[in-house]
Structures are given as structure tokens and as C-alpha cells.
Design a protein around this nucleic acid. Structure first.
Lengths: 245, 245
DNA sequence: ATCTTGTCGATTGTCGACAGTGTTCTATCG
DNA sequence: CGATAGAACACTGTCGACAATCGACAAGAT
């Protein structure tokens, strides 16, 4: 029995070419088109039109739409068509409540699991944010991508794949569709930065309870901020009333 | 196999039957087949076979599979086929962590929003559980459906549609696939009942903090119980299960 | 005897076409 | 002139067929 030691003629380290199905490609394209804003919420997705645009047949396109439908990124009404998911203010609020729950838990797990190197990276990010905010002082509108980086780093540190997928893949996609940002106004941005600091501190000291609490406080504040903005815009009041169920 | 007589123009008054598309039906059938155990985790879903069994063509079947794929109930590998989602012990644990976060939040919102009538119904359920447990004293294996009723009632009372959908439609489906029950052993059942009582009490007194805490404690205990069971079983040894199918 | 390689069968991926349904435009009637 | 009924159109829903790919088995070479 000779030792296998089989790396015989593999010169290049095995490019794992991941059997990309056409449906995967289409779904990916649709997803990026939606979250990038190219396809706005409520846009009707014509099968024929899209198929022609993407240069594919309707069958794989329909399957891609079905998958995104399962992820709640696309809504479909029989015999009418598919539309990009559109959230009412109430639905957005509900989604942010879910986010508070999930990301609070992620923050807790991150405090327990995050490597020192990642903690350092987190501090670095925080520092960059602070600098950026000083620079763009009043007009501060601090970059959406940066904020996402901060939250994503924490979420991934939770080491919980399901949690990561639900937040990074599904929930944040929906928030991106709405150009939602926790700190779009200068006053809020400053406060948000302080809250971020509190979160990092809690994580650095490996205090799960405090980390969850800080994150949830942060997200609650952001939500309240949004509510005020929506109220200012005089949009529809929540008013679900004790009717249902 | 011809379809059932398509009695063409029955003057049925306004069949506002939500335009059931064939894909919806198939997806529903697949879902129930999976959660009922008829299709065990890891089972390969042959398109031809299933299409012939259900009496439909492959196209709508494939679309239904895609939707369930988006919901993580089915996993698919290109050119190989679709399989019923299979959770490793780690993935099950991760899922239960997510459940703790979401259902804790649901419990909090329930404490804030639940009607008095529903609180009464909750107490009633609790009472039924207690009776049933006394009856089947030692052998207690208290019924999965009942336990679900309890949790579902609380979740729905959260008045958060997104939260409700995530828990009732998606997460609990996955747990059902694994015949997961928070209290499968007598000793645990008794303690679970006490924990349920604590939850109800917190909700009844409209204390959101305590309601969330009690629910999360309950779910953590259940999770720890499962961990011990898995550890006892050592290897995977997936017991034949309750003779499903 | 074992490993490689070519072929076969089966299954999945994709496509074009037809049928059913919703929408819209128009023509006619009140 | 406005409203309504009808028809034409466009779109989605479903199907069967063809192409591409994977797994298995068998034959040959080392």
C-alpha cells in the first residue's frame, strides 16, 4: 500500500469551477439590480422583456424569480406578474424590529467569539468613521457602505452561519432596497458613532450581555429616528389598532 | 391521467379563491410532505418521478422547488438535483439560537400587544397542558402540536407580520422536519411547563422585559437539553424516528 | 490486478410553442 | 357625451422536446 500523496499533475491548485447554473447567474443579476436601485421597489418584472434584456429564455428567468420570491425580495401575484418587493412603512418598521432581535443576538455572540484581530479591525473601522465624520463635519452623511462594513464585521463574528445568512443576505438586502441607513442626518451620525463605540467597547471586554444591549439600543435609536423622519414627512401613521388576530 | 372533471361553468358565486396557481399548490404539497416527514431530510427529489406522482409537468414543479430553495427548505446542487434540506447538529444549534432571538422579541411584543381574550386563551392552553401532563405522568411526551399552539399563539400576538412569517412559516417548518420538540422527555416536560407559566405570567402583567427574558430562558433550556441528548447519543445515530412516512 | 478511458443510460438545463387569463382600446348604445 | 360590451392584444401559465451534463459500467492498457 503505497502512500497516496496524490498531487500528481496538478500544477495549478484546482480551480473549483462551481458549476454555475444559468438560474444562479440570473438570480444574482436580479438581486444586484434590485439592491443597487436599478430596479426600484414596485417595478413590474416583465418576463418577456427581462428575458430579452438578459438574453435568456423565460424558463430559467422564471425559476430565478421564484427563488427570489422565496426570499421575499420579489412579490408575485398569479396571472398578473412579479414585482420588486415593496415595503410599507409598517412593514419596514416590522423588519427593523426583526433586525434588532437578530443583530442583538449577533452582537452577543460576537462578543463571545470574535478574535482579537477582528476586534482590532473593528476599532480601526470606528476610527475611520470618526475621521470621516470630522472631515465632513456638518454635512455628514456618512457613507452607507462604511456603516454596513461595521455591522457586517460584527455579524460575521457571531460564527452563526444561519444568523449571518439571514442578516447579510436577506435582511440587509431588503434594507438596501430602501436606501435605509441608520444615520443619514448629521445629528444622528454623531450619536450613532457614540453608540458604535459603546458596542465595540462591550465586545472588546467580552461582555455578551452589554454587547447585545448596546447593539439593540443603537438599532432602537436608529428606528426611532426613522419613525420621526417618516412622521415629519407626514406619511401614513402606523395605527394598526387592536383590531386584528 | 386526466385532471378531475373540469366542470366548466359552475355558477359558483364569486370563487374568490385566491387564484391558486399550480406552482402554489405544488409548493404547498411539497412543504407539507417535507414537514410531515413523508420526505425525510436528505431525500433526493427526482423531477421526473415527482412530476409523474403529482400529475404535473416538470416546469411548475421546478419553479416550486426553486421557491422552497429560496426558503432554505430544499437544497440544490447544479446538474445533480434537489434534496430536502438536511441540518447538521451545528446548523440545528445555530437555528435554535436564531429562534431564541426572534421568539424572545415576539414574546416581548406579545406582552405589549396581546388582547385580554388571547391572554385568557393562553392560560387555558397552559391548563390543558398541565392536565395532560398529569394524565400521562411518567411517560409524558407532551404533544408536539400542543407545544406549537402555545408558541404560535404568542408569536402571532406580536402583531409583527414579518416576525410571524419568519417564525411560523420558515423556522418552525425546519424544526418540524427534525421532529424537534422542546420537551420530549418527562423531566424536561415538567420544567418546560413551569417555564411556560413564567412566560404567561410575564405577558399577563404586560412586562415586556420579563416576557422576553422568560421566553429566552425557556428556549435556552430547551436547547441545552437537546445538546445533552445529542451528546448522549454520541455519534449521529439518527434514530429511525417515529416511523414516519 | 488496478487504473484509465470510452460509451451508455438517466437526469437535469434550456428552449420554443400553445393555452388561459387579464388588460386595453374601440365601437356602439343609451 | 359618457358608459358599457366586445374584441384584439399582451402577458403569464403550462407543456413537451431537445441539448448538456453527470454517474455507472465495461473494456483496454500498464
Amino acid at each position: 500500500m503505497d502512500l497516496p500523496d496524490d498531487r500528481p499533475e496538478v500544477i495549478s491548485p484546482m480551480k473549483r469551477v462551481e458549476a454555475h447554473s444559468l438560474v444562479d447567474d440570473i438570480a444574482q443579476q436580479l438581486e444586484t439590480a434590485i439592491v443597487s436601485g436599478e430596479l426600484r421597489p414596485g417595478t413590474k418584472l416583465s418576463e418577456q422583456g427581462l428575458a430579452k434584456t438578459l438574453g435568456v429564455s423565460r424558463s430559467p428567468l422564471r425559476e430565478a424569480i421564484r427563488r427570489l420570491e422565496g426570499r421575499k425580495l420579489i412579490e408575485r401575484t398569479p396571472n398578473i406578474g412579479a414585482r420588486v418587493a415593496q415595503l410599507s412603512p409598517t412593514e419596514l418598521y416590522d423588519l427593523l424590529v426583526v433586525r434588532e432581535a437578530l443583530e442583538g443576538m449577533a452582537s452577543r455572540r460576537a462578543a463571545e467569539n470574535m478574535t482579537e484581530a477582528d476586534v482590532a479591525r473593528l476599532r480601526e473601522l470606528l476610527h475611520e468613521h470618526a475621521l470621516q465624520q470630522e472631515a465632513s463635519a456638518g454635512a455628514g452623511y456618512y457613507q452607507q457602505g462604511r456603516d454596513f462594513d461595521f455591522h457586517f464585521l460584527i455579524i460575521r463574528a457571531s460564527r452563526n452561519d444561519r444568523l449571518i445568512a439571514m442578516l447579510c443576505d436577506d435582511l440587509y438586502d431588503l434594507l438596501r432596497v430602501y436606501r435605509y441607513n441608520s444615520s443619514t442626518k448629521p445629528g444622528r451620525a454623531k450619536k450613532a458613532l457614540e453608540e458604535h463605540e459603546a458596542i465595540v467597547e462591550a465586545i472588546a471586554s467580552r461582555d455578551g450581555d452589554r454587547a447585545e444591549d448596546a447593539m439593540r439600543r443603537h438599532l432602537r435609536n436608529a428606528r426611532a429616528h426613522l419613525e420621526r423622519e417618516l412622521a415629519d414627512q407626514g406619511s401614513v401613521a402606523r395605527a394598526p389598532g387592536p383590531g386584528a388576530l
